[in-house]
Computed example of a mutant assay.
Amino acid sequence: MAARRLRIHGRVQGVCYRDWTERTARSLGLSGWVRNRMDGTVEAVVAGSAEDIRRFIALAHDGPPAARVSHIEEREETESGFDGFQQRATE
């Protein structure tokens, strides 16, 4: 089991990016969470197999049709023990 914290930059708010993230993560069997940030980015923590996380990150560079991702910051994450995948409140 691995986990990554992602910060997605670009046109990612107001384009259903969180809904897309939740659906895509669940379809890959990942757990974790996603939320908007006050600075206009989207933050997510995804946990699961390293292969599924890599696949998710590759897909996240495109996101939903209206999104325009400029770049994704990623780092290892120690938070774990998620029950499914959920959306969290903006922070």
Rank of each mutant, 00 (worst) to 15 (best):
V34K: 07
T21Q: 02
W33P: 12
F85I: 12
Y17M: 07
R4W: 05
V15P: 00
A2H: 14
L6G: 01
I57L: 04
A89E: 15
R11W: 00
G32Q: 05
H61K: 13
R26I: 12
T90C: 15
G40V: 03
E79T: 13
R4N: 04
G84V: 11
S49C: 01
S80E: 13
S31Q: 13
A3T: 09
R26W: 06
T90S: 14
A47R: 14
T21I: 08
G63T: 01
C16H: 09
A44V: 13
S27Y: 01
R68N: 04
G40F: 10
A50C: 09
R54W: 02
V42K: 03
V34P: 00
Q87Y: 04
Q86N: 13
I8N: 02
M38S: 15
G48H: 02
N36V: 09
A44N: 12
V69N: 01
A44G: 10
R26H: 08
M38C: 13
A44Q: 10
R18Q: 08
D39Y: 09
E22Q: 15
A25S: 07
R55V: 12
L59N: 04
R35G: 13
A58Y: 03
R26C: 11
D39T: 03
R26T: 12
E73M: 01
R18F: 05
A44I: 14
Y17P: 06
G84C: 06
T21E: 07
R5S: 10
R23Y: 09
T24V: 10
G32S: 03
L28P: 03
S49K: 00
G48R: 00
D62H: 12
V34Q: 12
V12G: 00
D83L: 12
D62S: 13
E76H: 12
E73Y: 00
G84K: 07
A89Y: 11
S80M: 12
S80I: 05
R4F: 06
A89P: 14
V34N: 11
V45L: 08
R7T: 14
G48D: 01
G29E: 02
E51K: 10
R5W: 05
D39M: 06
R35N: 13
E22G: 02
W20V: 08
